[in-house]
Nucleic acid binder design. Structure first.
Lengths: 186, 186
DNA sequence: GCCAGCATGTAAGGAGTTACATGATTAT
DNA sequence: ATAATCATGTAACTCCTTACATGCTGGC
């Protein structure tokens, strides 16, 4: 008699992204999955460590990933996960479904919208902080992009990285534009 | 003896945005607040109806808004809310705090990232759906922008609307660019 | 007569966060 | 030695959503 059929729970969005990360073929630990997931932060929300552990357990319970105990360095042991065929089917189906609209929460836009409640100097500080954040993201994403090179295997990832670089450059330019509007009201 | 001091709870982000909406000076019902909040959807998440009612009750309990029973049309009655001085202080302080980084969740970027799991034709459909969504947002936001005119009272709102029009135009252009990359792989 | 819009809520649950708790290994 | 990184989890809580439930009013 084969194993009991895994309970058919539907993964959360984060669960699906973890399946996606495992679809690159490597066996990863929860810790490694978190670090890979952090690379999605340029266009997606990176999950908390604790959620990665919770989700990957759920995925294992559902049979979408296979768990394996690995002993490293003699005594220390780690759980690693790899995608099962069912898991791959699940991500594929999830991705093939019509996409939800993008989610955007833009604190700077919100502050301009409610600009009558803010001292212009404070608003300007917020805009400048945003620009600095954009620069930071551009640095980080630029580094990622360089690491990808033109390796055929990371072609799609590179496309997204290039898209992201444009996105954050646009974001930065928009911040500059808004700041001018604020500083020179008439 | 004055009224018991209102319990000092901190509003949720949605609660603060409701305070912000009330800071434009009008007394609004829960229903009207929801419709006003929907105008934030171009750069912020619009709350569900039920959450608006829950939050506005909490704000009233905290003394940040004042509730008033209004009888319309003889029998029908509505609760309307207006901002109290404490409420105004609370939003101001919230907005003056350093902004959180923007939140972005971009399903199309995610699909490109995991492009190896998708039939190119399906990916193209997703990109085209995204472009259609951008066009829709541009239409809606354009209509909002026109309604604002150059009324001095809506100056900041108009600045955000103009920013949004640029944002969605950029989004649309990026979708076109990505689609070309996908269609012509070499 | 019926449907769209106005109007208000409750109940249940989903998805995620922060804070806490623990401990081994590696590099400085 | 001590700090950073690797490694794994639990508990409590927040914020928000969907589904449900109800009823009035105005226009076609």
């Amino acid at each position: 008699m084969p194993d009991a059929p895994p309970p058919s729970i539907t993964p959360t969005p984060t669960g699906f992204t973890l399946l996606g990360l495992l679809s690159f073929g490597r066996e990863l630990s929860g810790y490694e999955l978190k670090r890979w997931a952090d690379n999605l932060r340029f266009f997606w929300s990176a999950p908390a460590m604790s959620q990665v552990y919770r989700e990957v357990e759920r995925l294992a319970a559902a049979g979408l990933v296979a768990q394996r105990q690995v002993v490293r360095d003699g005594s220390r042991s780690t759980k690693v996960y790899r995608l099962t065929p069912e898991g791959e089917r699940a991500v594929r189906d999830w991705l093939a479904a019509p996409p939800d609209p993008p989610v955007l929460r833009h604190p700077v836009a919100l502050r301009v919208f409610f600009g009558h409640l803010l001292d212009p100097a404070v608003l300007r500080v917020a805009i400048e902080a945003h620009r600095a954040w954009c620069d930071d993201m551009l640095d980080q994403l630029g580094a990622v992009r360089e690491g990808l090179g033109d390796d055929e295997r990371w072609r799609n990832v590179a496309v997204v990285a290039d898209w992201g670089l444009d996105y954050y450059r646009g974001e930065r330019a928009a911040a500059d534009g808004i700041e001018k509007t604020i500083t020179a009201p008439e």
